[in-house]
Design a protein around this nucleic acid. Sequence first.
DNA 1: CAAATATATCGACGGTTGTCAATATGTGTC
DNA 2: GACACATATTGACAACCGTCGATATATTTG
Lengths: 113, 113
Amino acid sequence: MSARTRIPVAVLEDACTTPLLDAPLSDADAAEVAAAFAVLAHPVRLRLLSLVAAAGEICSCDLTTPLGKSQPTVSHHTKALVDAGLLVGEKRGRWVWWRVVPERLDTLRSVLG
Amino acid sequence: MSARTRIPVAVLEDACTTPLLDAPLSDADAAEVAAAFAVLAHPVRLRLLSLVAAAGEICSCDLTTPLGKSQPTVSHHTKALVDAGLLVGEKRGRWVWWRVVPERLDTLRSVLG
DNA sequence: CAAATATATCGACGGTTGTCAATATGTGTC
DNA sequence: GACACATATTGACAACCGTCGATATATTTG
């Protein structure tokens, strides 16, 4: 399995709450944490997150221009963020409204200390 | 430039201290933060960090076996962690003694909130 | 139903990364 | 100096990822 293979959110939920430096990581925990950070390790996804946070709620069609990426690429990244539990989308009519899941960032923050 | 291109430590030091969700990220800041997380987005590097932390101080020759990786691969990862400011190595005789830089993890944690 | 719009998926291409074998460099020991 | 050992570097290969064009699906509007 690669460093960046995505891992189901549920798996990460019940582990990885111990800070990185407090105990040696098992192979499995390391893979889960690495997968979570891999999703954050991309400038477009980081900017996407911050744009959603700034707007509170926003649809994909209003993300393509500020991100400077094509519609399929934006869709690709929203999916990655949703799979990582960092973003949720609610479909209303033709649009999907995206919101950040701040609790998820809190979980990852706790891994760093 | 790619998402995972490494960026000099100094560059990251004087930016990226504002939490991700508090303000929209510039392209430049997003690239810097993404590069930092990319270094953490690898299970071998995470385990390496936790092994060093557990030992307090440890040399590469005592990392290859627990990591299950070849000597060049371990060297490759220590270099990545050093470039990211997460690890420092002190050469004593034939050995390099590695230590974690916890302040660096604190900086990254602050980006998440 | 037809047209328009928003998003998702597919397929393909180029670039990056992780890995190791081989080799080089540096350091202590005999 | 010759050898042994620890680490770094080089080169090469396989695997993965980001990107976009093309296309599919879903939903509203006329």
